[in-house]
Simulated scan of single mutants.
Amino acid sequence: MAARINNFLLQNLQCPMCLNIYKEPTLLACSHTFCKGCIFRLFNSQQEIAKISCPVCRKTTAVPSRYVSNLPINTPIQTIVEDIKNQSQICTTCKNKSLAATYCQECNDFMCVDCYKTHAKWDKFSGHDVVKVDDIVSGKITTKHRRKCKTHRLEVEECFCVECKKYVCFRCGMMEHTKAGHNILEGMEHEDQQKEKIRELQNKVNVKKGKVDEYISFIEKQQQSFMSSRSN
């Protein structure tokens, strides 16, 4: 299931220029979509004063008032991207809010691709058990959460604090986090909730993918109609 979602991301939500998930997906007249930042850099590098040439099909798009921000946002794509970022597991190592690709069983951290590369280079992390998020969600791998609590050395971090977004031992959960009004879950309960969110996300993606396909079909028909009227 998670693999199918990732395939959908790569095939439909990946900017053809930077190859990352869309940021402010901006639509050109040819119906191709790119990150606004990518279009801005492309526009500044081209010779045309008020037009931009699509790097995929080479068709030109007029840039209103020569401001890339005046180009339309691809709203269906933007909505799907926001849903995915809101409901998917986010990297807990950096502040970029990128989608997590792996999970370190020893560090108890989810990592995006860039953080994983950094983690893999450090000698002190050598030997850590790093698993794919896909394998956790699919149930192929069950996370261990056997890291010892730094405060209570004999306790294992087997609970999860919803507000702090981290695993804690039972004593820390009861003595510190609960007193602060935090919601404490069993580790397995938290993981089950994350899996359910992924299932809900897939259903939303399937529905919105259908809407995106309809939108693209509509644009293509409009283009065909426009080209037909020009030829007449």
Results as ranks from 00 to 15, higher is better:
K132E: 09
H119L: 12
V133D: 02
C159M: 11
W122V: 15
H119T: 15
S126L: 09
T151V: 12
T143K: 05
K150M: 01
C164N: 01
F125S: 06
T142W: 02
V162D: 01
V156W: 02
E158A: 11
C149H: 03
C159R: 12
K150A: 08
K148G: 04
F125Y: 14
K140V: 11
C164A: 05
F125M: 06
A120M: 12
E163W: 05
T143A: 02
G139T: 08
H119D: 11
E155T: 11
V162C: 04
C159F: 14
D123Q: 13
D129T: 12
L154Q: 13
E163D: 12
F160C: 05
D134W: 00
A120F: 13
E157P: 00
V162W: 06
C161E: 01
I136A: 05
I136T: 10
C149R: 01
V162S: 05
K124V: 15
W122F: 15
V131E: 05
V156T: 13
D135A: 10
T151A: 07
A120E: 13
T142A: 06
H119G: 14
K132M: 06
E157T: 11
V131W: 07
T143E: 04
F160K: 01
E155H: 15
V133E: 01
H128E: 01
H128V: 10
H152G: 09
H145M: 00
T142P: 05
T151G: 05
K150I: 09
G127V: 14
D135F: 01
H145K: 00
K150P: 12
K121A: 13
V137R: 02
C164F: 01
R153F: 11
E158F: 02
D123I: 13
H128R: 02
H128L: 00
G139N: 07
V133F: 07
K132W: 03
V156G: 00
F125H: 15
C161H: 07
D134I: 05
V131S: 08
